[in-house]
Amino acid sequence: MSKFLEVKNLSVSFPTEDGVVLAANDISYSVDLGETLAIVGESGSGKSVTNLAVMGLHNPQRTQITGQAFINLESGPVDVISAPTEVVRRMRGKTMSMIFQDPMSALHPYYSVGDQIAEAWGLYNSGSKRDGFARAKEMLDLVGIPDVDKRVNEFPHQFSGGMRQRVMIAMALVNNPSLLIADEPTTALDVTVQSQILQLLGGLQKEFNMAIILITHDLGVVAEVADRVCVMYGGRIVENASIDETFYNPLQPYTVGLLNSIPRVDKLGSHRLSAIPGQPPSLINLPRGCAFEPRCQFASSVAGNLCKTTNPNLDEKSTDHFARCHLSTTQLHQLLAKNESGAK
């Protein structure tokens, strides 16, 4: 059975003067209606680039995209990578929508929020401007903005950060899209506002049975809402598993490092927060071996310098749990246990 969105072997590269930047490398994932997929990784790991490719928002003259991304509509699957730009454009906003990190710069400063939402609605609905504004008010009400009759005519700069993100959400959902890509929707917001926005997204997802792809670098956000997690590093997916597997049984040293670098209430006092040493790799000349090898604390435990010479495959280490590592599950568990006792 196929899921709503299936990305298969998607690669995105940008030719530059210094060489080809391989920003996303052989990415595959899928997400179904009603499901939330979190894509986690640090800046430059390729998480936004991949999803902008799904939306068709890359400049075709400056980007090379290979692979496929199928959206399974009732009328049949559409590969948004190979489909004509006009076809993909007409899916944007209706089949798939996107919200962005900084809601201040993502809204047009010269148009009222009602105007901007009505414009999105008017693209796929025939109706007067008045109908568009009525719909905009409905949407603003839905995303929890008070006093919509007045606020619908206000401009983005008159809203607070959280309210602006609500406006963005209202605009993205005005045509009931089946897929919502949220690119770091809470990164620019206060922690209290963050959880409000996440709750709002969760509620709307249930109401509209949407597939959500949540791009973030914040594992706290992931834990709150995701069903499944893809961890990306150096333009590749390094681990792809359900939320529980990711948090309680990570099988890739990078994921382990990420989890160790966030504070956890259940382990308070017993360990220091650890940082992953080193820098993320340059995407122009990726190492031949594992991209994470230079920063990996377990690389020396692998026999025959394998981590330096060969890039591991994304293997199914246990049922429906994929990880990219030369260490077997047992080996990794032994090493982790040793670390734990060493820390004590």
Partner: peptide, 13 residues
């Protein structure tokens, strides 16, 4: 600008 990307994401021509 980001708001032009948003306009594109809405599906505008």
């Amino acid at each position: 600008e980001d708001f032009i990307r948003t306009a594109r994401a809405k599906g505008l021509s």
